[in-house]
């Protein structure tokens, strides 16, 4: 059921990471991602890992929380490792029938595993410590240069915001509809594919009708509250960079430079 959705969930808190400006978090993430991808040697790997240990430590969330958020993706991680280990050419280390595992294969596999793991934790740090609205505001700011290119950034941010607001409502609605039609004997789980698709009609038709009705109401309500597409809007709380935000960005930028440096030196 819905209880399974824990990835991407905001976990309230007052830690330094929670209180960071969402724009600073997104900028830092934008800097650390190339660092993760470029890191290929021990000093760089150690530096990135240390950086993440500090950040996740500052988030005030227990390591177990991050561990659990990665669990559903175990299969994917393992699969990537195995593919790398098996199919990287090189001097074979182990023979398993027709399969050769080479030393470069193991190294490549481990490196990939590390990169994916680190990326996942970075994503988790951001979603665990940032409310969806903050995230939208941050993205809107990051993308705001695109307004010059006539990309409707403000509108896209508003759409994302509305989607976040209405997802729980629509989930509730869908669950209720499912139960109501089941009470009249609707069956969505048995029969041939054709029958199942037909069986979805009593569920999908009212769901879509209700969504459109809601959308109509919502559009009117927004207009009545003086919303105008394309018009500039102010904010309840202005986003403001403070010293900590600059420090975090600077530290991450230094990390990227260092990783780059190790790469050039070798």
């Amino acid at each position: 059921m819905l209880s399974g959705i824990t990835m991407g969930q905001y976990l309230p808190g007052r830690s330094p990471v929670h209180r960071m400006d969402p724009r600073a978090k997104l900028l830092a993430a934008a800097l650390v991602v190339p660092a993760i991808l470029l890191a290929g040697f021990w000093p760089a790997i150690t530096a990135v890992t240390l950086w993440l240990a500090v950040v996740s430590g500052l988030s005030g969330l227990r390591p177990g929380v991050y561990w659990r958020s990665m669990k559903p993706l175990w299969v994917l991680l393992l699969l990537s490792f195995t593919m790398q280990a098996f199919f990287t050419p090189g001097e074979p280390l182990v023979h398993l029938g027709w399969i050769n595992i080479s030393e470069p294969g193991l190294v490549q596999g481990a490196l990939l595993l590390w990169r994916l793991g680190i990326l996942l934790v970075v994503a988790s740090v951001i979603t665990f410590t940032t409310t969806p609205l903050q995230l939208t505001n941050g993205l809107e700011w990051l993308l705001s240069p695109l307004i010059r290119l006539r990309v409707p950034v403000r509108e896209l941010a508003m759409i994302m915001n509305l989607a976040l607001r209405f997802v729980p409502t629509l989930f509730d609605e869908a669950r209720l509809l499912l139960m109501a039609q089941q009470s009249r004997g609707a069956d969505f789980t048995h029969g041939s594919i054709r029958e199942r698709v037909r069986g979805l009609v009593p569920f999908m038709v009212p769901l879509l009708t209700n969504i459109f009705r809601r959308a109509d109401d919502l559009a009117l309500a927004m207009e009545l509250r003086c919303y105008q597409v394309g018009a500039p809007r102010s904010r309840l709380t202005e986003l403001r960079f403070v010293a900590g935000d600059y420090a975090a960005i600077a530290a991450t930028a230094m990390l990227l430079v260092f990783v780059w440096g190790t790469r050039l030196m070798w």
């Binding site: 509809l177 109501a180 039609q181 009609v201 009593p202 009212p206 009708t209």
Partner: peptide, 9 residues
């Protein structure tokens, strides 16, 4: 259900 007309299809 409550407001059952919402289930009409």
């Amino acid at each position: 259900f409550q407001f059952p007309e919402r289930q009409i299809f």
